[in-house]
Write a protein that binds this DNA or RNA. Structure first.
Lengths: 234, 234
DNA sequence: CGCAGAATTGAGACTGGTCAAAATTTGTGG
DNA sequence: CCACAAATTTTGACCAGTCTCAATTCTGCG
């Protein structure tokens, strides 16, 4: 665990859990929050651990993943500042959460947050909205995993990163891709090799540029979008 | 739309949205509910329609699906009595909902339900719980779609139907499979042919029996479970 | 009983996976 | 700041699981 005493500005982003609350609401949320910093690669919690806390990501990138007994892994989400995670089912986390980069987290005891939400309609409403949007995202990902080709998956992944960077106020086109090829592969239901080959192909066609391993420039967003929609198989 | 005036017992199942509420809460929910019946194959709403209602399924089976522009389809869920659906994002439904069999639905105007939830902590809490459980299910399905083989997918599908039937108080082993092979294929990210071949293989090995097209008997649950966990590749 | 749609079965093709090697990047210590 | 080791990524050759296309059989319904 990294040291430092971060100020828990858990309203990093306007869509964060505790943003847009009344001053009173904000005070309530503040009273039950804690915070932590983790170095890249560290684990926030593991699939199967007792689910006691819910988190809001303040800075850095987090990945959520599920494992099969033989080691096959599916990454079910990458999180960026403002995103939240950590709701368990039956008191147990359904996935592992790990820091991709150094991260700062805002932490809430789940039961206290839920109790607070019962007294604060605005917070409850916010919770519901965020869950609905998480669910919609997961359903979108099911479509990707079940029905799209490698090329379409990669194009969609890049556009999704770009869109999310933009929403956080970062530039939409040279985007940081902090996760490894293995992480990308496990997120898209592919292998490292296929991800690499697909990126190379997109580069060869001039749709993207790869100035460095963890940077991607989208050169032809319209073409990428066509691929991501499943229209052009060329 | 079928005729008939169903009594909206929207607490069909203990996990239903409006089950387990106080009498007062129940009265509140009752005051905003409507109901409808649809024949098999009819559409409740389509992806992209304005999202005005949320539904609880009272009887029958519903499927939720998303389409790609070229017609590829992913079924993101099958619903059974007690399940709810219909939360839209940005006022629009993210998927199409269709009746697999004849169904009876309980309908709520989304805005009225949300307003009610703000005044009724128990309802809000219930909403959150159900959304968390939907999300967990979606994440489980991502693992299936991204990382499992056809054999594992089919085994897991059958066990999931069995488990849900059991939870509704129906027998766990000769289970009704009301959906077509095409629906199953689109749910598992496979083709009709692969689903059919896989079922035939499981039958040949004595793990299941197929007394009729829409009935499946699980003959060796332990073996199926092993396959579904990704342990035995035999 | 006959027909239309659904499901099964078969043969061959292709996308993406596997295994292996080469190239590149990253991180570390001098 | 550089050199070197380790890890990651890229590239290549080949393979396998699933898909495609096509024919046949089965099922349910009028």
């Amino acid at each position: 665990v990294l040291d430092g005493t971060p100020t828990c500005n858990c309203d990093v982003e306007e869509r964060a859990l505790c943003a847009g609350l009344t001053p009173e609401g904000m005070r309530g949320v503040r009273s039950i929050r804690g915070n932590s910093r983790l170095a890249a690669q560290q684990t926030v919690f593991r699939e199967g651990d007792p689910a006691e806390h819910v988190y809001t990501l303040m800075s850095g990138t987090v990945k959520l993943s599920k494992l099969l007994l033989d080691g096959r892994r599916q990454i079910i989400g990458f999180l960026f500042p403002g995103d939240f995670f950590g709701f368990g089912l039956d008191g147990v986390y359904g996935y592992t959460a790990e820091a991709v980069t150094d991260v700062a987290l805002c932490r809430f005891a789940e039961n206290r947050l839920m109790r607070l939400a019962e007294d604060m309609p605005e917070l409850g409403r916010r919770l519901t909205d965020r869950l609905v949007s998480e669910l919609a995202f997961a359903q979108e990902q099911m479509l990707l995993l079940g029905r799209m080709t490698a090329r379409e998956k990669v194009a969609r992944f890049l556009l999704s990163l770009s869109r999310r960077a933009e929403r956080r106020g970062e530039p939409a086109t040279p985007i940081a891709v902090p996760m490894s090829r293995l992480d990308i592969a496990d997120y898209l239901g592919l292998t490292i090799e296929t991800v690499s080959r697909t990126l190379t192909a997109l580069k060869r066609e001039g749709l993207v540029a790869l100035p460095s391993g963890h940077m991607v420039a989208l050169r032809d967003v319209a073409a990428l979008r066509r691929i991501a929609e499943g229209q052009s198989n060329s």
